[in-house]
Measured scan of single mutants.
Amino acid sequence: MFYPNSPQTSPQLTQIPYGQQYAMMQRQIQQPYHPFATTEPQARLYPYHYQGPIQQEQGGFITQQSTAASPQYVQMRVTPVDQSIMSGYPNQTANGSSSSSFNYNIHPQQQQQQQQQQQQLRHHAMPVGSVPLQDDRYRKQLIVNYLAPDVTSTDLHELFSRFGELDGARIIYDKQTNMSKGYGFVYFCHAEDAKEAVERMSGYEFHGKWLKVGYSTNPLNIVPSNSSPYVHAGSRGAAG
């Protein structure tokens, strides 16, 4: 039997160049792979992502010199942007860049009308829970959420009447099932009393439920100042 490094198959040491006398086997001759043993700084910083320098080929596509990437890492192929796409944008300079302001050559009167329309939209648009300043009635009506099913309009009136005089209180019921929808409205005579009720009743436990109280901004629920107070009856038909 002959071994790869046996004296019968191995040459004389004098015939082997210096430095390879003890590297006779194939696994010894093959050098191990060192990912950080390279002179390129990109490979030292990113050993798993770097795959060699990027070269520009004919046709405008950018390719990489090395083989496919590892399945664990996804390499994105980048193509140059066609400058003709950006030619339609206004205020574009000769080098292809555009300024931040756009001039669509709008007539001054049209621009003024658009600004007025935007101001009107901001004036009428009102986020949930906010209180408008032009109508004091919005500051007097509250919406009470997360009410228990057994709470009546009379219970709601008695709960909030300790903060001040009320114009009314009612629970909203479903017309088909005649069941409470879980929320109601309270109408105060003074805005200061309503503000105190919002601050003190939010998070209050009532009939096993934690109440959420806020201003009601729905104009359909506003009680006119010259109208008669609501009837605080315990029956659902009268309260709904």
Rank of each mutant, 00 (worst) to 15 (best):
F2L: 14
Y3D: 06
P4D: 05
S6D: 10
P7V: 07
Q8C: 11
Q8I: 08
T9I: 07
T9N: 10
P11L: 04
P11W: 05
P11S: 11
Q12I: 04
Q12G: 13
L13P: 14
L13Y: 10
G19D: 05
Y22G: 14
A23D: 09
A23S: 11
A23H: 12
M24F: 04
M24G: 10
M25R: 15
Q26P: 07
Q26N: 05
Q28R: 12
Q28I: 02
Q28E: 05
Q30T: 08
Q31T: 08
Q31F: 04
P32Y: 05
Y33Q: 15
Y33G: 06
Y33S: 13
Y33K: 15
P35R: 14
F36N: 15
F36R: 15
F36E: 15
A37Y: 07
T39A: 07
P41A: 09
Q42I: 05
A43L: 03
L45P: 14
Y46V: 07
P47D: 11
P47K: 15
Y48W: 04
H49M: 03
H49W: 03
Y50S: 14
Y50D: 14
Q51I: 03
P53Q: 12
I54C: 09
Q56C: 08
Q56R: 14
E57K: 15
E57N: 12
Q58S: 10
Q58H: 13
G59I: 07
I62K: 12
T63C: 05
T67M: 14
T67P: 09
A69K: 15
A69V: 07
S70L: 03
S70Q: 09
S70G: 09
S70R: 13
P71C: 07
P71F: 02
Q72T: 08
Y73M: 15
Y73T: 15
Q75W: 00
M76S: 15
M76W: 08
V78Q: 06
T79R: 14
T79I: 03
T79L: 04
V81E: 13
V81P: 12
I85K: 13
M86R: 15
M86V: 09
Y89A: 05
Y89S: 09
Y89N: 06
P90L: 09
P90E: 14
P90V: 08
N91H: 07
N91L: 07
Q92A: 12
A94F: 10
N95W: 12
G96P: 08
G96Q: 07
G96F: 07
G96Y: 04
S98M: 15
S99C: 07
S100Q: 11
S100C: 12
S101F: 11
F102W: 14
F102R: 15
N103V: 08
N105V: 03
N105W: 13
N105Q: 05
I106Q: 04
H107Q: 06
P108E: 12
Q109W: 04
Q111M: 07
Q113C: 09
Q113I: 07
Q115E: 09
Q117D: 04
Q119D: 07
Q120G: 08
L121P: 10
R122M: 04
H123F: 12
M126L: 09
M126P: 08
G129N: 10
S130Q: 06
S130R: 14
L133S: 06
L133I: 12
Q134F: 07
D135M: 14
R137C: 09
K140Y: 01
Q141F: 00
L142A: 01
Y146H: 07
Y146W: 03
Y146I: 00
L147W: 00
A148Y: 01
V151N: 01
T152G: 12
T152M: 04
D155G: 11
L156A: 00
L156Q: 01
H157S: 05
L159N: 00
F163P: 01
E165C: 15
L166G: 00
D167Q: 06
G168W: 08
I171D: 00
I171N: 00
I171E: 00
Y173M: 03
K175C: 08
T177G: 02
N178T: 13
G184V: 02
V186C: 11
Y187P: 00
F188V: 00
H190G: 05
A191F: 08
A191S: 07
E192G: 09
A194Q: 00
A194P: 01
E196A: 14
V198P: 00
R200F: 14
M201W: 01
M201P: 00
S202R: 06
S202G: 08
S202I: 15
S202K: 03
Y204N: 11
H207I: 01
H207E: 02
G208F: 08
K209Y: 03
K209W: 01
K209I: 00
W210S: 02
W210I: 02
K212C: 05
K212T: 03
V213C: 10
G214D: 06
N218R: 03
N218S: 02
P219H: 01
P219L: 01
L220E: 01
L220V: 13
N221A: 07
S225A: 12
N226R: 05
S227N: 08
S227W: 15
S227R: 06
S227T: 09
S227V: 08
S227K: 11
S228G: 13
Y230V: 04
H232P: 06
G234C: 14
R236H: 10
G237V: 12
G237C: 14
G237Y: 10
A238L: 10
A239M: 07
